[in-house]
Design a protein around this nucleic acid. Sequence first.
DNA 1: AGCCGGCAGACTGTTGACACTTTGCGGGCC
DNA 2: GGCCCGCAAAGTGTCAACAGTCTGCCGGCT
Lengths: 238, 238
Amino acid sequence: MAATASALSAPAPSPEALDRIARRRAESLAELAHAGIERMILEGLLAPGARLNEQALAARLGVSRGPLREALRALEREGLVQGGPAQRGMSVRRLDAAEVAELYDTRALLQGFCCALLARRATAPQMAALRAQVAAMAAALSAGDAARYYALNLAFHDAMLEAAAHRRTAALYRAMLKESHPVRRQMLDDAENRRASNAEHAAMLDAIAGGDAEAARRAGEAHVLAGKRRWLAGLGGG
Amino acid sequence: MAATASALSAPAPSPEALDRIARRRAESLAELAHAGIERMILEGLLAPGARLNEQALAARLGVSRGPLREALRALEREGLVQGGPAQRGMSVRRLDAAEVAELYDTRALLQGFCCALLARRATAPQMAALRAQVAAMAAALSAGDAARYYALNLAFHDAMLEAAAHRRTAALYRAMLKESHPVRRQMLDDAENRRASNAEHAAMLDAIAGGDAEAARRAGEAHVLAGKRRWLAGLGGG
DNA sequence: AGCCGGCAGACTGTTGACACTTTGCGGGCC
DNA sequence: GGCCCGCAAAGTGTCAACAGTCTGCCGGCT
C-alpha cells in the first residue's frame, strides 16, 4: 500500500536533481538578496545594530523591494536581522552577552553530539583528513596567519559535521556559527586563543579515535565551552 | 566607555515595551499570515506535501500576495514549508524517516540539557508546579482523554523550558516540536505510548530533584529517545 | 492508434505605485 | 528663552498589475 503510493508519487529525487533545484532557486532575486545581505553582515560591512534601509539595500543589490523584504524575513528567522517596532523596519541583530553565552552553550551541545557520532561512525580516511586539517591549522598558527587560521578552523568544523552525517545537527551548528560570527572572529584575533583552540581540536580527535562516545562528547563540549571561557575572559579585559 | 555608549543608545528595553513591540509587529499582515498558515499546518488543514497556492491562500487569509510571500519565506526557514523547483512555489514540508529520526536526536539533546539546567537551577515552587502537571497528565491518562493529554504534555515541556531559563534552548526545542508535530500527534494517539511517556516525565523530575545534573541530562535524553523508539516501532507496525 | 507540436490557462516572480506612520525641523506661542 | 504645534520628508507596509514560465489539452501528423 505504502509502496504503491510512493511509486505513484514522484520518483526518488536524485542528488543531482536536488542540486539543480537548489541552483535554480538560488537564482531567484530573493535568494540572491538573502545571500548578499548575509555576506555583508558576515563581512562586517553592516555593523550590528545598523538600520537596514529597504530602498537603499534594494538599489545596492539590484533588486526591488519585494524580494528584498522576503530575504529580510528569512534572515530574521535565522537570527541575523531583527525587527524592532512596527513601521521602523529591520536592523542587523546585536547580541547581548547573555545571548552570546547561550549560543556557546548550545553550540557546545551540538559539538559534543557531533563528536560522539564520530566516535562511532568515523572512518579511517575521514580521521586522517581531519588530522591533516589540524596540522594545517598548526602551520597557520606558526606562521601567525590569523585569517588563514580562521578559514581553516571553519573548514575543519564543517568537515566534522559532514563526517558525522547528521544533517540537522550540521544545519543548526552552521546557523549558530553565523550568528556568533562577529564574536568569534574577534576572539581568534588573539594568537594565544588560536593556540589553545587547536590543542583542543587535537584532543577532540584523540577522544574520537579512542572510540569512546561519551569521552568524545565531553571533549567536543569542552572545546566550545573553552571558547566560551576565553570569550568571557576577553569581555572583562577588553 | 561601554557604559557611556549604552547610556547614549536606547534605554534598557523594559519587558512591557518588548511586549508592545511584539504586539504591534504581530499586527503586521505578514505576521498574521505567518500565524495563520502555521496554524493550518499544525491543525492538519494543510497536509504534508500539499501545494500552497499563493492566490488562494492570500484570499483565504484576507491579505495580499506580498505579505503572504514574506510569511512563506519565514516558514521556509522554520522548516514548515519547502520550496521545490523555481516557478513552482512552496508546499507543506514532508519529512522522511531519516529527518524525523534526526529531529528526535536533536530534541533529545536539548531536553537533556534542559534537565541538566533544571537540576541546578530549579526552585521548589517550580518543581511543585511541574509535579502537578505530571499529575494532571496522569488524570487525563486515566480518563482516556488523548487530546487533553497532548495539550498538557505540550504545556509541561513548555514549563520545563521556561523554568530552565535558557532562551536559545527553548526556541530551538519549540521550533523542532512544531516541525515534528504531525508525527508526535499520531504517536500519542496510542494509550500505551501516553502511559510510558508520563512515566518518563516522572522519572525526569525525580532525576532533577536529585540534583545530579548528569543524571538529569540522561533522563531527559532518555525520554525523547524513548519517544523515538516508540515511533520506530510504530513505523514497522503501521 | 499513438505521438508530437502548438496553444490557452494558471500560477509564480517581480515591479512600481499608493497609503499611512514616524521623525526631524521651523515657526509661533507662552 | 524654552516649549509646543504643525509640516514636510523619509521610510515602511501594502497592493494591484505585468512578465515569464510551467501545465494540461486539443488538433494534426505519422
